[in-house]
């Protein structure tokens, strides 16, 4: 579920790309703060969403694999020992 939500969030972000101003073809005399700052932003968002995919994927997998109704689910050793 988290995964899907993050996927939609990524999509929403991708759709928001038009706010990225179209850069002038020739490099101006001055530094363009828009391109510097927005490029930094998108570099970081790429990394953030990659990590987000890994983390949410892990959460989803954990929930799927270790649910008590999973065919391979077995009592934890702590349950056997009664110490949890």
């Amino acid at each position: 579920m988290t995964m899907r939500i993050l996927a939609y969030a990524t999509l929403a972000l991708a759709l928001s790309l038009p706010i990225l101003p179209v850069m002038a073809a020739e490099p101006g005399e001055y530094l363009d703060r828009r391109s510097e700052i927005w490029n930094l932003f998108f570099r970081m968002m790429t990394v953030a969403f990659t990590i987000g995919t890994v983390v949410s994927g892990t959460i989803v997998w954990l929930c799927w694999r270790f649910r008590e109704s999973h065919p391979k689910a077995k009592r934890t050793k702590y349950e056997e020992a009664g110490e949890w």
Binding site: M23, A24, G28, Y30, D32, R33, I37
Partner: peptide
Amino acid sequence: DYVVLLDAVPGRVNTVWFAPTE
């Protein structure tokens, strides 16, 4: 649109710059 942002604080002068392209 030009990512210019700085507080206007009474008693202080803050400086920020930009170069419009088109």
